[in-house]
Amino acid sequence: MSRAVLYDYFRSSAAYRVRIALNLKGVDYEQRSINLAEGVQKGGDYRAVNPQGFVPCLEIDGHTLTQSLSIAVYLDQTIPEPALMPRDPIDGAHVRSLALMIACDIHPLNNLRVLKYLAGELGVSEAQKDEWYRHWIAEGLTALEAMAKPRAGAYLFGDQPTLADVCLVPQLYNARRFNVPLDPYPYLRRADETATAHPAFAAAHPDKQDH
């Protein structure tokens, strides 16, 4: 297998997820930073790689893959161990639901391009923008806590990391950046604490990346 190439941005939640998944699967990869804050993703060079202009984008096995959850599923299908998804269909559906709550319901309302649009084109104040962020995070995490609680273990589901934890850890990292109180979510905090102590998660942390 040739070395994979990850088009990355250190603070991107979606790219953070893929770094975790690659580390869990033991994939050797080269990182190429796409500075979202400086608008590099809008340039023609990167659009030629990923027409959507988002990160992450992963070149692996002769293919170019986009979308963090799609990349994680590909890695899980081609590198079965350690598994990111339970084999039982009901357990798998539960884990996917937790992951999708984060990746599809919480994160899109609070990513950089949305926050920039609020502050720029719509002219909302910094305080209003931060309130927008905290509102949607709190609403999403409250539901996620309730969904996870009955089947949580050391991780969000059981006692081994799954796709749900791959999504959770970046989301809580960003919640802390915006001073969202996390005390109401003991099961989420426990899973996050367990996961961030895992070497694969720790190595993917934004503070460990080149900016």
Results as ranks from 00 to 15, higher is better:
V180S: 06
P186T: 00
L141N: 01
A83M: 11
V40A: 06
R190M: 11
R17S: 10
P82N: 12
N179P: 05
Y155M: 05
L112D: 11
Q31W: 00
S97L: 15
L6N: 06
A93Y: 09
R189L: 14
L118N: 14
Q128R: 08
K208D: 08
Q52D: 03
Y187P: 02
R177H: 09
V180H: 05
T64M: 13
Q171Y: 02
L122C: 02
V27H: 03
N23H: 03
A195M: 07
L182V: 06
D61I: 09
P51W: 03
F10H: 10
K129H: 15
D183T: 12
A4V: 04
P108Y: 04
L58Q: 15
W136I: 00
F157M: 01
Y9P: 09
P108A: 13
L36N: 12
V124M: 11
F10K: 07
S12E: 15
A48E: 04
L168F: 07
Y16K: 07
Y16P: 07
A103L: 05
Y133K: 09
R3D: 07
P89D: 07
I106E: 07
P184C: 07
E145C: 12
A203M: 09
V180C: 10
T142G: 10
G92F: 05
A14W: 09
F201G: 04
V5Y: 02
D207V: 15
E81I: 14
Q160Y: 06
Y185I: 06
L24Y: 03
H63Y: 13
A138E: 11
H198C: 12
K129W: 10
L24C: 01
D207G: 12
Q77C: 13
Y46Q: 08
P181F: 13
I79S: 04
T64E: 07
D183W: 05
L98C: 01
K129S: 15
T196V: 14
F10V: 09
R177E: 10
N179L: 01
N174R: 02
R190E: 08
Q209Y: 04
I71C: 06
Q128F: 12
R17P: 13
E126S: 14
I106M: 11
A15K: 01
E139K: 14
I20E: 08
D76S: 07
V49M: 11
A21R: 14
M101Q: 09
H198S: 06
E139N: 14
D45V: 10
A21Q: 11
D159A: 08
R17V: 08
P184R: 02
A103C: 10
D45P: 00
R134T: 05
